[in-house]
Simulated assay, not measured.
Amino acid sequence: MPDRNLEFGKYGAQGIKGHEAVARQLDRLAGFIATPVTARRGLMARLHYLTRTPHARAAARDAGLTVTDRTLKAWLDGKRQPTRQNLERIDAAYLTVRRANVSRHLLARLNRQGRGTRVEFHPLNQSQVPRPRQRVIDYRTLNVRRWDRIVEAWAAGDEGALDEAWVNDVVVDLGSQWGEYEYVTAIGFAA
């Protein structure tokens, strides 16, 4: 079994870690609000999402949005604007709460009652690597049936756990050449 890459990009290869590509794809499937929090529309959408029910408010407080109800009402009514730090807290709380809310549904979609989801591994970009140092890395597909640890780590925002789950539960199933797919251009799957 190959070891982890220690000097990725030394000869000009370009790509991202596989777990980062998976997190981006899961974020796309989660359907986050596209308008930035700095725009009035984006701010209002996030605040409405975080304050629509008592359960949502409690989840927002647990995620780090610790302002008074009076301040939230002033923001919603447009009487006051949040500071830059509060905008960052609102956005972080929104991402945390949204991931927690959609993770169970997303897990069911990806596992598909044990049938799993087909994942595409797009190899890293070697266009800047000198010709003698380039390797032949093929496009690969794999049916992933165990998404539990991956989605759990993604929902918690734990990159280390996501990396471990992705490598140990998925990438090693590619066989003896799994180290070639630790860094990729993209990971594709649809659920």
Rank of each mutant, 00 (worst) to 15 (best):
R89P: 01
L26F: 05
S103K: 01
Q177R: 11
A186P: 07
R61S: 03
R109Q: 12
A191R: 10
Y183V: 07
M44I: 14
G179H: 12
L95E: 03
R133Y: 10
V184R: 02
V167R: 11
S127P: 06
G64L: 10
N5F: 13
R115E: 11
V119T: 09
V151W: 01
D77W: 06
Q14A: 13
Q113S: 14
G15V: 14
A30R: 14
A191N: 13
E7K: 12
L87G: 13
P36R: 15
T185P: 05
K10A: 13
D62S: 08
M44W: 12
N143M: 06
V170W: 08
D163R: 05
L110G: 09
S103Q: 05
A58Y: 05
E159T: 06
G114E: 00
A63Q: 04
N168I: 00
R28F: 15
V119M: 12
L26T: 01
A93I: 01
M1S: 14
D163Q: 11
E120H: 14
R146W: 08
L76C: 02
R118G: 06
N111F: 07
V171P: 03
E20P: 13
H48D: 13
M1T: 14
I150R: 03
A165Y: 05
R104M: 09
R40G: 15
L76G: 04
L65N: 00
M1A: 14
Q134C: 02
L76Q: 10
A93L: 05
N101V: 06
Q128I: 02
A100T: 06
Q85R: 12
A30P: 15
L87V: 08
I150N: 01
Y139C: 04
N5D: 07
R52C: 09
V151P: 00
A161H: 03
L110C: 09
R24G: 13
D163W: 06
